[in-house]
Design a protein around this nucleic acid. Structure first.
Lengths: 225, 225
DNA sequence: TTTACATGATAGTATTACTATCTTTTTTAA
DNA sequence: TTAAAAAAGATAGTAATACTATCATGTAAA
């Protein structure tokens, strides 16, 4: 049996649905790659247009601006991750195991085969690490939030928050703890690679120590008081 | 007795020392204010030039680009904060009290009177909250790091890391825990104000709950195992 | 087969992120 | 005090960015 999950994207993110056309899918695929290559600040629609042999105007028909494209890619990833977590913990019984699984999924390299070929989980993870917080660190975070653009991220944190409460019903800060773990999964990876003095992780390929750190952070907090 | 501390800034940050001239100090003061007002992306040297009645070229004589100005302001804050922590815990004996003091200083509104009049701790704190991570989330983080531009931030984390070890010598991830607490002090404030679903803090002026969360996070981790 | 619609091609604009040059003013040092 | 050095002001210019607009063409659905 073969199947794939389709993630319904917020319609406010685009002007024309990029999944529905060849050009749209090219924008997503090469957009992701080019942002990763150049960094978000250096990335422009002009450069993307050249890369996929179309015109700037062509891309503007799909996305209002590059920031919307960034949020599109980010929210795809958060939705995918939430789905992946729900699916993976479905068969588990203890909240402890569920939370450990969730941390593992936050940290390990994803599998590109699980998403449409015009996207790549590994590349999305790189994007989250480098550009993730730029999705919300803008002056229009308020209106973007009203447009529910951050719903997938909030849903993911809410999901973790529920797990935290089911493990430790009296814990006082489940949402903050959830967002801390999610943020730190990526921030600590960035630090490990770029500002290693801020971490205790040797620069090896595996992220076992990061996983251990996040588990320690999460379970210690929940087990206290 | 009146005194003030002078923070020596990394010379690579500027082309001409902004503290040494009226124009330089105006760039710092109004630069900080204008970035806070417009957000870093919308902020330009042209707009700043208009605001302080000089020319774009005039500002470029002090700072290579707006990103350097951002790092200048950020590192000033991190240096100030480290000094403030060292000064405040000097008279304390227990590592526990020292760490609690450090968290308090990370969270509470600073006192503008403690820095030169062309800067403002409160405004720098707003800057850290909104633009802080943009200082390092760039493709040139490697070269910037080689130029030691992030030293004040790393020093601050190292300081906290030492306190963590003196409280709990066997704790395995003192640097990561330190950077987590510092990052979260600001990220959670941002979430509280802008994406409250990611926190458990009601939108009141006081940050007592944030302090409680950070203390819980820190001490639980250190007390485990 | 009409007609709607997506794409392509081209052009244009205000702004950004600089660099260059020349003049005037202020500071400093002989 | 005066000459020279340095800082600031004024102006200009350039390539790139972040769009918007228009018109032609090809393709797919009614």
């Amino acid at each position: 049996m073969e199947f794939s999950v389709h993630i319904k994207m917020n319609e406010k993110l685009y002007l024309r649905d990029p999944e529905q056309s060849e050009l749209g899918r090219k924008i997503l695929k090469h957009g992701l790659e080019l942002i990763n290559k150049l960094g978000f600040e250096e990335f422009t629609f002009k450069k993307l247009a050249v890369a996929i042999n179309t015109t700037e105007a062509g891309i503007y028909r799909y996305f209002e601006n590059k920031h919307r494209l960034l949020i599109y890619l980010m929210t795809f990833y958060w939705s995918y991750l939430e789905y992946k977590i729900v699916f993976s913990i479905n068969n588990l019984t203890s909240p402890e195991k569920k939370l450990k699984k969730a941390i593992e999924l936050l940290v390990v390299e994803g599998d590109d085969a699980e998403v449409p070929s015009y996207l790549s989980v590994k590349k999305l993870q790189q994007l989250v690490m480098w550009e993730g917080s730029k999705a919300y660190l803008t002056r229009h975070v308020g209106t973007d939030n009203k447009d529910r653009l951050f719903k997938p991220y909030k849903d993911l944190c809410a999901r973790l928050s529920d797990l935290i409460l089911s493990y430790s019903p009296k814990y006082k800060f489940p949402h903050s703890l959830a967002s801390t773990v999610v943020e730190m999964a990526h921030a600590q990876k960035f630090f490990k690679n770029n500002l290693p003095a801020l971490t205790d992780f040797p620069n090896e390929k595996e992220d076992k120590k990061l996983t251990a750190f996040l588990e320690n952070l999460l379970f210690s907090s929940m087990n206290t008081k």
